[in-house]
Amino acid sequence: MSITLSIQDGVALVTLNRPEAMNSIDPQSNEQLLEAWEEVSRNEDIRVLVVTGAGERAFCTGADLKKTMPPADSAARLLYGSGARGLNFGSLQTHKPVIAAVNGYALGGGLELALLADIRICSDNAQFGLPEVRVGSIPGAGGTQRLIRAVGQSDAMWMLLTGERIDAAEALRIGLVSKVVPLAALRDTALVIARAMAANAPLAMTAAKGLAMSGRELSLAAGLELERQAFGLLRDTEDRLEGRRAFAEKRSPAFRGR
């Protein structure tokens, strides 16, 4: 399989499994990635998703140009035709938390895949870049939109317009990643974070993620009003009552998403 999916302790681990091709994405792995994302979104046993690459050299280096030929159908048919998923993974969404564990190169579509995550951590050998302008193209899976929302405008424009790479230390400095760890510790670190998150109340995590993402597009007043409504909806859930009981009884809560 070009994309593997394993589930344990409420955490789904999706691995790009083409290390011989620097985990680049060909049509088969693109389709499998879409299917894995759908499984994560609909499977109630999954509370958090971790995405990483196989091997030590690369998280993902974008499209496999040797296997990705121009499609026979028009862009309009691919995007709007019967049963169309869209042109690529750039439109993927899930209400569940996503962690990208970036091992090695995250270039082009690989960086765009990492930008889908809510939290990004990386190995100390990681490198990031959007080199598309150097070959007469642009990032086509969300890079022009998500990068400038993830880091400051000047840093985002520098990466977009020069096409140059940055290393792990620079990625941490500009806020592209939250943590840099040794390569050997990367996957375990991501899973520890994911399991801690998976122990939290799933409805509350979904609400918190949704509010934060929506709030970027709203005025402060509108965002605060949404927050007030969500707080009221969560107030009477079983999980909130369980959280209070567990705190009073000095035990770990057992959340059920109800």
Rank of each mutant, 00 (worst) to 15 (best):
I46S: 09
F89H: 13
D118G: 06
V151N: 11
V48H: 08
G53D: 08
G83L: 07
L115G: 05
I99M: 02
P71L: 08
S154I: 12
I119K: 10
D124M: 06
L147D: 12
L147Y: 07
Q145K: 13
A76T: 09
A100C: 03
V151Y: 10
Y105H: 04
V133S: 05
E44Q: 14
I148H: 01
L79N: 12
H95S: 13
H95M: 12
L111Y: 04
L34A: 14
E39R: 15
A84G: 06
G104W: 02
A84W: 08
V98C: 01
A117F: 00
S154E: 15
R77M: 08
I138K: 06
V98K: 00
I46C: 06
L107E: 07
A75Q: 02
L78A: 05
G152M: 13
L34R: 15
S74Y: 00
G142S: 11
L92T: 04
V51T: 08
V48A: 05
L34K: 12
R57V: 15
S123A: 13
N88E: 11
P97K: 13
F89A: 12
A150E: 14
R77C: 04
A58I: 03
E38A: 15
A114E: 00
V51R: 01
I46G: 08
Q127C: 14
G104R: 00
V151S: 11
R42L: 09
T94C: 00
R134A: 15
R146P: 03
G152D: 15
G108E: 14
I148E: 07
L147P: 05
Y80R: 13
G140A: 15
I148C: 10
L33V: 13
I121G: 02
L115R: 04
A84Y: 04
G55A: 03
V48S: 03
L113K: 02
L92N: 10
A114S: 01
F128L: 04
S154G: 05
R149G: 08
